[in-house]
Design a protein around this nucleic acid. Sequence first.
DNA 1: ATATAAGATGTAAGCTCTTACATAGTCCGT
DNA 2: ACGGACTATGTAAGAGCTTACATCTTATAT
Lengths: 334, 334
Amino acid sequence: MTIYDISEKAGVSIATVSRVLNGSRKVSEKTRRKVLDIIDRYGYTPNAFARGLGLNTMKTIGIMCADSSDLYLAKGIYYVEEKLRENGYDSILCCTGYELEARAAAMNLLITKKVDGIIMVGSNFIYEKDSDNQYIANAAAQLPVMLLNGELNAANVYSVVSDDYTSMYDATLQMMQSGIKDIVYFYNSTSYSGMRKLAGYRAAMLTQTDSTEGLEQFYRGSHEDIHAMTRYLKDLQETGLQFHGIIAADDTLALAAVKYAREMNYRIPEDFSILGYNNSMLVNCCEPELTSIDNKLETLCQHLITILLGLLEGKEMPNRTVFPGEIIKRGTTR
Amino acid sequence: MTIYDISEKAGVSIATVSRVLNGSRKVSEKTRRKVLDIIDRYGYTPNAFARGLGLNTMKTIGIMCADSSDLYLAKGIYYVEEKLRENGYDSILCCTGYELEARAAAMNLLITKKVDGIIMVGSNFIYEKDSDNQYIANAAAQLPVMLLNGELNAANVYSVVSDDYTSMYDATLQMMQSGIKDIVYFYNSTSYSGMRKLAGYRAAMLTQTDSTEGLEQFYRGSHEDIHAMTRYLKDLQETGLQFHGIIAADDTLALAAVKYAREMNYRIPEDFSILGYNNSMLVNCCEPELTSIDNKLETLCQHLITILLGLLEGKEMPNRTVFPGEIIKRGTTR
DNA sequence: ATATAAGATGTAAGCTCTTACATAGTCCGT
DNA sequence: ACGGACTATGTAAGAGCTTACATCTTATAT
């Protein structure tokens, strides 16, 4: 069933059918009715390839993500996909893992598939080495590239980010003001936003201490393995390091911190404070419940899509928008 | 840059270029070299639409999923997507929510986009009413439909499922044999596999009790809100129902159960047993850690993809494959 | 009534590939 | 040396849509 069949049955030309299909206004109401009627009587759907060939777009956005099973990234994908579909676009998903090469390959694949734009969900690896980001800049030469919680100074690359620096700065200061000075920063990602968080922590610490040496702890293991994270903290304690607070770069790490503190028989929050990040469902999973920073993921995604759609309509759009986060106080901090 | 440009620069016809591109063997080695050389000198990539038009496929699989931010489904998407890409396919993702209408619409959209097959990740709503599944059967008339943890008796629909019934049956029996008779079944989904789990629980209970009346508790609220789940259990207790064990249909519900038991000051597992399902990262999030059933999601996904790829090559494939689960014993059961 | 503008529809070219069929070139056996 | 059987390559016809441009209607102004 093609446009020819329809045009024949409706007694009009294929151009008219095409116009009806595309909502062009140059069709009389009567003709439109007739064509629409035939179309759904015969259950015709246009061939997406042919259409793509003619229009040179298929209303599809590529989503790149290191790991769709990551709690936070999965939510990002969810919001982005939802809002795209509400606007008549759909999404090709590419989960790349964390290797640069795989990411660059995925990017090319998406471009080959003729997506109209690319959204990078999660900021991993942005900013590691400057040259490592070349693949993004290259892609941006052909289509708009949106960075959710990432940043890159290149033409046609647009960022929507949470102000992780400030959130972390404020939270750290708050914990210090509650009387804890020996706060470990526990993180597992060197992504753009990961680095911003670390910087916020560090800046706040340095307002009251000389150095954060030894306190910044980078955990390399599995992002899901709470056991291993807990063990890491125990090992750390056994090296002789004193600490009575942990600020974690995400809720999973924070949960491990809670576990550690319990095993050490610290009272939380009287003897030991813990702060998480992302305000995910995990905050309710421990006793006491986790204080965590909400970085307003849904809002970020909403804006990101608005900007992308604007770009696709040829409008000028801001190439960097920043949203504040919010500290959600619960039981693990004073 | 089109195939014409390349053919001209290489001094051959477009047919030859096309043959090189498609790995046809009817090209001399010398010509192939020459063409390949030009292609990558000019960085040419074939137009996916034109190619799709000609070949009537774009090596793309549609993935349907109710909620990509669900812990379990997200993992499913992850595995499926990974294995597809390893085999040269990529994926269009549609998150539909749980409404039938939205699911049917998403299905049509995928078909319109000319995907080569559809994978339904998670079994929600399959089997609710028979007529509700018509949209799946219809889609299957046009392309293979794969059900991960779902089932439907229709042509060209293939299932790969975990044997949830048996897992749940065994686990329930085991808990009863440990001495607990008043076990609540705590669930929140009427999906196919949800129903199978329930049936397993029920069958096991009925080997030792007359009825499970009042013990099967269907929770309707948010799938992430542990507070609400805990409250639900408290309310239940306040109605006067006696229970000293909870078997939950997923780990989130089980975590709420742990929380409930702690708040009631039960000792776990001495006074109170809890079983989770999915063996997700959540099992480490409580004290004691959660006994949970592992339904081998990665294995399921691997087989599902193998079957799909087989079908796409025109092979005969089994339309139903079942894998056993495994009870992973931890601290919440005796 | 006539010229003109506006609106509706049709014609045909174009988008970039794939591939059946035609042709040209090679090699073999007799 | 010639017909036949290959192999390598080219030609041209699709594949199903969009859209600029041409044409035909109809309404409007004079």
